[in-house]
Amino acid sequence: MFNNLIFIILFMLGFYALIMKTNLIKNVIGLNLMEAAVFFWVIAFSDIGGEVAIHKMGEEVTKFNDPVPQALTLTGIVIGASTAALLLTLIIELNKFSGTIDRDQLEGLND
């Protein structure tokens, strides 16, 4: 319950920054927050009070946390990082052409 609330707050905060902020860098930050919220929720939800999913030599552990969502999250984090880098690269290029990163000033130029 508690984690759901945090997830939704963070997700909506990120979504708000994505659609309402005019600064492009803030939009990327919002996107990052959205992704981080989803990943946090996945990890928190799959936590069933077990151990870290690594066997120890000579020890039998009966209860592990689910390793599959963690693996999926790991993939998601790496993809998120590379997309953020690509977005920032495009913003740098755009800034070079127009000298601004304000979305409102960019939209009005030619439509």
Binding site: N27, L72, L86, L87, L90, L94, F97, S98
Partner: peptide, 27 residues
């Protein structure tokens, strides 16, 4: 050019947002 860079940026923003939604469904 400025136009193409802006188009690509918008495309990527929308594409990633769609990707996040897709990920939520899958999980």
């Amino acid at each position: 050019t400025e136009e193409t860079t802006r188009a690509a940026m918008q495309y990527l923003f929308y594409g990633i947002t769609g990707g996040v939604f897709f990920f939520i469904s899958i999980i």
